[in-house]
Simulated assay, not measured.
Amino acid sequence: MRDFRKYSVWEQSHNLVLKVYILTNKFPNDERFGLTSQIRRAATSIPTNICEGCAKISEKEFARYLGISFGSCQEVEYLIYLAKDLGYLSMEIYDTFQVEIVSIKKQLYQLIKTLNAVD
């Protein structure tokens, strides 16, 4: 069984979730059940699916869960973009999140590619 804590992409995505929670605390209260909830769920899905994938026996199954994480990254990337356009965060904060999300996506992509090459 794989230990999810040994994957740097898991650690980075976990840190992203912590930052998303801090960021969304500053969103308007009327977004609590809208954008705030959705971005938190999408962000949390990234490390959660890495963890769940680590419990799978085959490389193919693990890669499938990493693919779900990748999709959640895409979702977070858009939701951060939307929050910027709605004026909930500055361009500077947006850029910081964008760099981090792209880094996570690159790591996931490389890991998926490696796992798929094994099968």
Rank of each mutant, 00 (worst) to 15 (best):
R2S: 09
E100Q: 15
A117E: 13
K113M: 04
L66I: 11
T96Y: 09
S69E: 04
K105E: 10
L89Y: 05
T44R: 11
Q107S: 14
D119I: 12
F62D: 07
D119P: 14
G87A: 11
L16E: 11
Y21T: 00
T96C: 10
R2T: 02
I39A: 08
K60V: 05
T114P: 03
K19D: 09
V118A: 13
L86D: 12
P28I: 10
T48A: 14
L86S: 15
E11H: 03
T114C: 12
R64D: 07
C73L: 04
Q74F: 04
Y78C: 07
C73M: 07
A83E: 03
I68S: 04
K6D: 10
L66F: 11
Q98Y: 10
T48S: 14
K105W: 01
V9E: 06
P47Y: 06
L111M: 11
K105R: 10
L18D: 08
T48M: 08
Y21M: 02
Q107Y: 08
V102F: 02
A117N: 15
W10I: 08
S58M: 07
Y81Q: 15
D30E: 15
N25L: 09
A43D: 04
V76K: 09
R41D: 00
Q110S: 12
E52H: 08
T96V: 12
I39Q: 05
I68H: 01
F97D: 00
P28M: 03
N49E: 03
F27P: 06
M91W: 05
D3C: 08
M1Y: 11
N15V: 01
A55C: 13
Q38A: 09
